[in-house]
């Protein structure tokens, strides 16, 4: 009986199918590895607390609008941090290059999503106005940190700005670029 496929073709097809199955399961395992299944909200004794935009501005050497390109979460000591690569879209105060790295406390690691007082770290493609200073410490090199951990971070949603959770005073009512006394 003459088969439509030769033995060689059948063997090749079989090997390709096995390889595709292995790749499929590896990709799926990789995707699920960092997918958080439970949330841990971290609570801090903050070094600084800001009640107003004026306080935040005076304390921040750098203020900029950024767009996040990539993020990477990793543990240092007993704490999970996230380092984000961001494109600088506009600088309101200080001097910055076109690309910066922003270090945040929190992120997703080993199936747990660590939130800073209920606030998630940056995700890719998010935009925000951030009040920054250069980070001094061992967790990341050549990076900036957000003033007050999450207090100096305002996510851009179209024309609106969204302040972080658990901020105090005037910062709770920030809704626009005008409220931050900056242009879009």
């Amino acid at each position: 009986m003459n088969s439509v496929f030769s033995k060689k073709q059948i063997l090749t097809l079989f090997i390709v199918l096995i390889a595709a199955t292995i790749v499929f399961f590896q990709v799926r395992a990789e995707a699920s590895r960092d997918k958080p299944t439970s949330t841990v909200s971290m609570h801090f004794d903050l070094s600084e607390s800001f009640q107003s935009v004026d306080q935040l501005r005076a304390s921040s050497p750098v203020i900029a609008r950024v767009k996040i390109n990539t993020t990477k979460s990793y543990p240092y000591g007993n704490v999970v941090f996230t380092l984000s690569d961001a494109s600088v879209q506009k600088v309101y105060k200080g001097q910055l290059g076109k690309q910066i790295r922003i270090l945040e406390t929190g992120g997703s690691y080993e199936g747990l999503q660590y939130l800073a007082e209920g606030n998630a770290v940056f995700a890719a493609s998010e935009e925000a106005v951030v009040f920054l200073e250069k980070y001094e410490g061992p967790v990341a090199e050549d990076a900036y940190v957000i003033k007050g951990v999450y207090q100096g971070k305002f996510k851009v949603a179209g024309e609106r700005l969204i302040p972080s959770s658990q901020v105090s005073g005037e910062l709770q009512s920030i809704q626009s670029f005008h409220d931050l006394q900056i242009s879009k």
């Binding site: 971290m42 609570h43 070094s47 240092y76 001094e136 410490g137 940190v145």
Partner: peptide, 23 residues
Amino acid sequence: LRQDAYGVNIGWNARTANKPVMT
């Protein structure tokens, strides 16, 4: 309870994480 050096301006003096879910 542990200690480590996380940086002078990381923004926090100490942190607590209650597991499995804080909230």
